[in-house]
Design a protein around this nucleic acid. Structure first.
Lengths: 147, 147
DNA sequence: ATTGAAACGCCAGAAAC
DNA sequence: GTTTCTGGCGTTTCAAT
């Protein structure tokens, strides 16, 4: 993990489908060495995968919400959330709230259905997203630790 | 937006760097038609981009937390969050809580620093993530609406 | 208009230095 | 890490539905 690897991760986070040739130019290296660095980053698990980001609203998923749960049934709630198609992410957290689900659903009506079912596993408090800023990029510092 | 487009989006969400040839085989189409469909999905903005997912812990970002704010200074808080390198995502939400920031930071100490600074813009309540499930995939139903 | 087939150009991967 | 080389993929064009 040197400064070049961090630059590579920066570029790949912004655009996973950049060609290795163009990536090599951006980091001032030849294509083969760049490819080898990317391969190592994949092998080390530092690169976990390449995902396509889709526009939820354009696919009729108009409501995004964070549903916060006070519950003692985290296992059951996790099982419920992991198979529910509207749940994008969920988190076991430390605090008064013990579970957070990010849901992306068609309407307030389908959100209501989700909440009704989820109430079996805890007490939800729902926060509908009005606007968001998600760069989804891990900004890497210039220290030389880890890797 | 037909069933083939949804299959394409499903495959691309799982792996953005799948070759168009392999993708074509999965959806039982020729490469050119598959490429053309992907191009249209990009043009329509249904595909917003391709991102590389990196392992935060392997890069010394050991603490992920959701910081919930009660505040009336959303604009200022948004400005602060959008330039802070540890903030991965933030959301303006409707409810008693009015702002949610997802932060990914090196340690509880750097998290403390973030909270101290953020307190200028509202009252934070911090929920450290213990474990998570994030498929990050929008599961598409079989209806024919939108597009 | 959109799909499927073939040729072209270019990129990714391997070997040698 | 760089250069060279080759195989294979993505892209474009064209014909057909």
């Amino acid at each position: 993990m040197d400064v070049i690897d961090r630059k590579i991760l920066h570029e790949l986070q912004a655009n996973a489908k950049i060609s290795m040739k163009e990536l090599a130019q951006k980091v001032y290296l030849s294509s083969p060495s760049t490819i080898e660095r990317v391969r190592r980053l994949e092998e080390n698990g530092i690169i976990k995968g390449y995902k396509t980001i889709v526009d939820a609203e354009k696919l009729n998923r108009n409501i995004t919400a964070f549903v916060l749960f006070e519950t003692t049934k985290c296992k059951d709630l996790a099982a419920f959330c992991s198979v529910h198609p509207d749940v994008m992410e969920c988190y076991r957290v430390a605090g008064k709230i013990s579970y957070i689900a990010k849901v992306c659903t068609e309407s307030v009506h389908t959100l209501e259905e989700f909440i009704d079912k989820a109430m079996e596993f805890g007490t939800p408090s729902t926060n509908i997203v009005l606007s968001s800023y998600t760069n989804m990029e891990l900004k890497l510092s210039q220290d030389t630790s880890s890797g």
